[in-house]
């Protein structure tokens, strides 16, 4: 069999791919018109479940670039049982994440002992002004609606 020149072979590959593209459609997605849904675990934006947060500052301290700002104060809450002493609880005044600094590492979500932080795969929150990327606790609370259930695990996953 005579040797096929490499140039001709390469053209064959290109033609084959062209045929496949005509038949099956292109791989590209026309972004603003059609959207790909990111996987469940995708690290898009951090959501805050405010009721669970006790302003313990663990996330703020473990953040590699310190982009979480927390302020809180102690206040007295009514007793659980009638006749008891009033309880002292931590109240969250401010919980800001600066997404201009965030490295999306997920350490804050991991260290939170009270399940107050969650990952959401939502990604469309770019802003014209960099200062608007500082999300306050109301905005972080709104992301809670987009948090999906954790995915099922592959067979053989043990405790």
């Amino acid at each position: 069999m005579p040797k096929v020149p490499g140039l001709v072979k390469g053209l064959g590959v290109t033609l084959g791919i062209f045929g496949r593209t005509v038949k099956d459609g292109a791989n590209t997605v026309q972004y603003p018109h059609e959207k790909e849904s990111p996987p469940i675990r995708a690290r898009g934006v951090i959501a805050l479940h405010e009721d669970n947060c006790t302003a313990c500052m663990l996330c703020s301290r473990s953040c590699p670039d310190w982009c979480i700002y927390i302020e809180g104060h102690k206040q007295l809450a009514p007793p659980r049982r009638a006749g008891g002493k009033p309880r002292q609880v931590n109240h969250l005044d401010r919980f800001d994440i600066d997404y201009a600094l965030c490295m999306y590492c997920g350490i804050c979500v991991e260290v939170c002992p009270f399940d107050a932080l969650f990952w959401s795969p939502e990604y469309e929150y770019s802003e014209p002004k960099i200062a608007d990327l500082l999300h306050d606790k109301e905005k972080l609370g709104e992301w809670m609606e987009t948090v999906p259930e954790a995915p099922e695990l592959e067979a053989g996953a043990g405790k």
């Binding site: 996987p39 469940i40 675990r41 995708a42 490295m103 999306y104 590492c105 350490i107 990952w119």
Partner: peptide
């Protein structure tokens, strides 16, 4: 996409 669905990060899995 595979790396993202397993780890959560496309480029920086951590």
């Amino acid at each position: 996409n595979l790396i993202e669905s397993a780890t959560g990060g496309r480029f920086h899995p951590n």
